[in-house]
C-alpha cells in the first residue's frame, strides 16, 4: 500500500503583533509544520512499521523556503517528498480550497496512492475542507475528522472512527482508495531521531511546477479574495488584575471567596 500525506507549512504568529493592511506584519510571523499533519505523518509511519504500507510520500505546495519544514516531516519517517511550486502561484491567494485541491489532485493522479492521510485543517487559515474536496476531485472515498484507524484493511476497507461533537464517535467503514482527514490525538507523534534528521537530508525531494502536473498556469486564480483583517473585539469587559503573582492571586482569591468558593 502506498500512502500520500499532504504536508502544510503553516504561518505562526507571535503573541504580540501588528496588522498592516490585510496581513500581519512579517516581523511577527514564523513557520512550522502543521500540527494536524504531524498526526497524519505518524499514522502513516505506524502503518509502514506494521508492514501495511510500502511507501510514504509527502506533498507540499510552497516555495523554496518551506524545504526545511519538508525535511522536518521526512525526518519522522516518510520515504520521499514532492514540493509543488510555480511562479504563477506566488501572486495567488491559496485560501481557495478548490485551487489547492486541483494541484493536489494532479499529484494524486500521478502517484496513485491507496490512502491519502491529510490533517483535519491547517492551523493558520483553518478551512478544514481540502481533504474532502481533494477526495471528490480524484474520485476517492473519504472520511473527515478521523481519530482512530484500524490497522487492517480487509476487503480494501478502512475502518475508522470519526470524532463527532459532544464526546460521540461514529464508526465508519470506508472503501479504498480513500482520503482520511486526521484529527489530533489519534496517536502520539514521535520526535525525529538524530538518525532520522540525518537521513531526511538525503531523502528525495522532487520539485514540480504546474506544467509538470499538466495544469495550465494561465487563468489560474483564487475564487476568494482576502479583503480585511482586524483584531477581534473583546466580547466582555474584562478586568485585568495588575501586579506580581502574589498580588494578582490575592485579587483572584478575594473574588473566589466572594463567589462562595471553598467556603
Amino acid at each position: 500500500m502506498k500512502i500520500l500525506v499532504p504536508v502544510t507549512e503553516v504561518t505562526t504568529v507571535e503573541d504580540e503583533f501588528e496588522i498592516e493592511g490585510t496581513a500581519i506584519a512579517d516581523r511577527y510571523l514564523g513557520a512550522d509544520l502543521n500540527e494536524w499533519d504531524e498526526y497524519a505523518i505518524e499514522e502513516a509511519v505506524q502503518l509502514q512499521e506494521a508492514g501495511l504500507a510500502d511507501e510514504i510520500v509527502t506533498v507540499t505546495i510552497g516555495p523554496d523556503d518551506c524545504e526545511q519544514t519538508i525535511r522536518q516531516a521526512l525526518a519522522k519517517g516518510p520515504d520521499r517528498a514532492i514540493r509543488v511550486w510555480d511562479d504563477a502561484l506566488a501572486d495567488v491567494d491559496l485560501l481557495d480550497v478548490g485551487l489547492k485541491s486541483q494541484i493536489l489532485a494532479a499529484v494524486v493522479d500521478a502517484e496513485e496512492p491507496d490512502l491519502v492521510l491529510s490533517g483535519v485543517q491547517s492551523g493558520d487559515d483553518s478551512f478544514g475542507a481540502t481533504g474532502v474536496t481533494l477526495a471528490d476531485a480524484v474520485g476517492y472515498e473519504w472520511a473527515a475528522v478521523v481519530n482512530h484507524l484500524a490497522h487492517d484493511f480487509d476487503d480494501d476497507t478502512a475502518s475508522v472512527r470519526r470524532e463527532l461533537e459532544g464526546g460521540v464517535e461514529e464508526l465508519t467503514d470506508v472503501e479504498l482508495p480513500a482520503v482520511l482527514t486526521i484529527q489530533t490525538g489519534i496517536n502520539e507523534p514521535r520526535y525525529a531521531s538524530l538518525r532520522g534528521i540525518r537521513q531526511a537530508q538525503r531523502k528525495p525531494l522532487e520539485v514540480q511546477d504546474l506544467a509538470d502536473l499538466g495544469i495550465d498556469a494561465d487563468g489560474l486564480e483564487s475564487a476568494l479574495t482576502l479583503e480585511e483583517m482586524a483584531e477581534p473585539e473583546s466580547e466582555t469587559d474584562v478586568t485585568v488584575w495588575e501586579g506580581d503573582a502574589d498580588e494578582t492571586a490575592a485579587e483572584l482569591a478575594d473574588l473566589l471567596r466572594e463567589k462562595g468558593v471553598a467556603q
Binding site: D96, G98, F127, G128, T130, T133, A135, E165, A223
Partner: peptide, 20 residues
C-alpha cells in the same frame, strides 16, 4: 464535523467555491 464531511464535496461537484 458532519458538515465538513460533505459540504466540500458539494462545492466540488457544483464547481463553486467554499468558505467555511
Amino acid at each position: 464535523v458532519n458538515g465538513l464531511d460533505y459540504a466540500p464535496a458539494v462545492a466540488s461537484r457544483l464547481d463553486v467555491p467554499i468558505v467555511t
